[in-house]
């Protein structure tokens, strides 16, 4: 059944349906309209940056897509399937992944265990009471991801002992577990050193082509290097969309961005 999902995913990746489709997604918290009629379409493998000031609704948008919140109105489709009311785990099992702005990790477990859990979560037999064998696929791919994220040295350390940068790298590694098709990256570069930023950009640029992502990023430098398309949000609405160059030179966008930086 699982392989069926993957096969149909690859078929649609060949051109049948969009990776992600948002239609009129609205989220209201009491009187606050956090998202206002947001529509957005991502092709399979598309890499997009979402920009916008604080409170523009970027993280709320991610929370609606992952299912942490149910939208007040609107429809969300993942590879053609209506996932609007699915619980988070069902969306993750369909190839959606996300990282969090503030690292949400398992502080009492080791780095390898964190990644192992991420690999295990999208496989069957999640309730198994048998310890993993040395050659269990999930364990092997967890070891690979440890290397990908350059965390070999701290592999068996508790996450609570990691540096901030290492925790951010771990976030990314966990989002790449299993067979991801669409990543939601919430400010992955925040608080990283220039070297760590460079490493992050390389990881993103080297992802297999079929993996698309949406990245929320304040650092224009990073955002424009890893995204082929940019969505600008403001006050819960999509304010402008275009390719990076267009938006960089757009007077309105500049005004909004510089205004934010100054203010």
């Amino acid at each position: 059944m699982r392989s069926g999902v993957q096969v149909s995913g690859r078929l649609s990746a060949a051109g049948a349906s969009n990776a992600l489709e948002l239609r009129g997604v609205t989220k209201r918290f009491g009187a606050l309209l956090a998202l206002n009629d947001v529509s957005m379409t991502l092709r399979p493998g598309e890499r997009r940056a979402v920009l916008g000031s604080n409170g523009a609704g970027k993280t709320t948008l991610f929370n609606c897509i992952t299912g942490d919140f149910l939208p007040t109105a609107g429809e969300i489709r993942l590879y053609g399937e209506d996932i609007t009311v699915f619980p988070p785990q069902e969306r993750i099992r369909r190839g959606l992944r996300r990282t969090y702005q503030i690292s949400l990790l398992f502080a009492g477990l080791s780095v390898l265990d964190n990644i192992y859990l991420a690999c295990r979560g999208v496989l069957r037999r999640r309730f198994s009471m048998l310890r993993p064998g040395r050659n269990e696929p999930a364990l092997l791919s967890a070891v690979d991801l440890v290397e990908l994220a350059h965390l070999q040295e701290v592999r068996d350390s508790l996450v609570s002992h990691l540096s901030y940068g290492q925790q951010r790298q771990l976030e990314i590694a966990m989002a790449l577990a299993g067979a991801p098709r669409l990543l939601l990256l919430d400010e992955p570069a925040a608080g990283l050193s220039p070297n760590e930023r460079q490493a992050l950009v390389e990881i993103l640029q080297n992802l297999p082509e079929h993996i698309g992502y949406i990245i929320i990023e304040h650092d224009m430098d990073v955002a424009l290097r890893v995204a082929e398309f940019v969505t600008m949000m403001h006050n819960g609405r999509v304010f402008k969309e275009g390719n990076p160059r267009e938006l960089e030179n757009d007077a309105e966008v500049q005004a909004l961005y510089l205004g934010e930086v100054d203010g």
């Binding site: 992952t66 299912g67 942490d68 619980p87 988070p88 785990q89 993750i92 099992r93 996300r98 969090y100 949400l104 990790l105 398992f106 859990l117 991420a118 979560g121 999208v122 999640r126 966990m174 577990a177 299993g178």
Partner: peptide, 9 residues
């Protein structure tokens, strides 16, 4: 919350 975002019920 993170666990359900990893595919666990």
């Amino acid at each position: 919350r993170r666990m359900s975002a990893l595919g666990f019920d």
